[in-house]
């Protein structure tokens, strides 16, 4: 029982890794955000708050990317949570069919983002793509669209891919939550004469709420940081309609070579994610 102070030594490896891979890069980004470093040469000047001022006063693309990010996040959070909950409700039992379908829905999660992006880019292709071809075949030509080439809908088309990609993962969390609900509660509800909707509202939902909070929190952060799908499918186009903060920061750093400015964008991005995470944590605690 007497481990003594030496027990803290076991924290050192983890602490070193945390300092190296989180604290140091974070502080570096903060430091460089006050410079005009180009990322290529060793020279840079301190520019004070100039990068931040430019972002908030002159950078119209940053604002556009931020709004796109919010739209992307809302679409993904709403539909991913909804679909994963509905599928989980249908697949809670451990029957052979349910287990097979759960595995099937989980399958996209194990694919690489780039593969998913390529598959969907071809499916969305207006001339050769499967989606418009199927709509044509079904005499639903009026529904055919320029899925990722039309600036008004491109961000939602990619959001739909993100939902398809990760719904299976969230479904597993919901299934775990649903399977933890005691069966007696359903029997009592049945004896009390509750219908299906009342049973869901009064029994299932309150008890699956902690799982729902985890799903919402995780999906929110995941969708805010989405980079790979957008980068591989549209690179932020057309006309910045799918540009989100993560792709914008990448372009600023690795195409424009404005590392100082990209660092300032990253710091703001980090603060936004921290606020969202904090809000989610508060929600999680209030449900516990």
């Amino acid at each position: 029982m007497k481990a003594g102070k030496s027990i803290y030594l076991f924290l050192i490896p983890g602490l070193i890794l945390y300092l190296m891979f989180f604290i140091y890069p974070t502080l570096s980004a903060l430091f460089y955000s006050f410079t005009n470093w180009d990322g290529l040469t060793a020279d840079f000047d301190f520019v004070g708050m100039a990068n931040y001022v430019e972002i908030f006063t002159k950078d119209s693309i940053f604002k556009k990317a931020f709004v796109n990010n919010l739209e992307f996040m809302l679409f993904v959070v709403i539909f991913q949570t909804l679909f994963s909950l509905v599928f989980a409700l249908m697949l809670t039992k451990n029957s052979t069919a349910s287990i097979f379908l759960r595995a099937l829905y989980f399958f996209p999660t194990i694919l690489s983002s780039v593969s998913v992006a390529f598959i969907w880019t071809y499916m969305y292709d207006p001339n050769l793509g499967l989606i418009n071809k199927l709509l044509d075949l079904a005499n639903l030509e009026f529904l055919t669209m320029n899925w990722i080439g039309d600036g008004d809908i491109a961000i939602y088309s990619i959001s739909a891919v993100q939902v398809w990609f990760h719904t299976g993962q969230m479904l597993i969390i919901f299934v775990a939550g649903l399977q933890g609900i005691p069966k007696d509660l359903y029997e009592v509800a049945k004896m009390e004469g509750a219908n299906k909707w009342q049973t869901f509202r009064k029994v299932t939902w309150p008890l699956v709420a902690p799982a729902a909070t985890i799903v919402v929190a995780y999906t929110t952060i995941q969708s805010f940081k989405a980079f790979d799908l957008i980068f591989a499918m549209t690179r932020g186009g057309p006309n910045y309609s799918t540009e989100i903060l993560a792709t914008l920061i990448y372009n600023t750093a690795f195409r424009s070579y404005r590392f100082g400015y990209a660092s300032a964008e990253s710091v703001i991005f980090m603060i936004v994610i921290a606020i969202i995470t904090f809000t989610q944590m508060r929600l999680l605690r209030s449900r516990a």
């Binding site: 207006p126 899925w147 080439g149 039309d150």
Partner: peptide
């Protein structure tokens, strides 16, 4: 331009 030209990549245009 072909229909939905902003959704067409170079490979697709070469095919056309």
């Amino acid at each position: 331009f072909q229909k939905d030209s902003l959704g067409t990549k170079h490979d697709g245009a070469i095919a056309l």
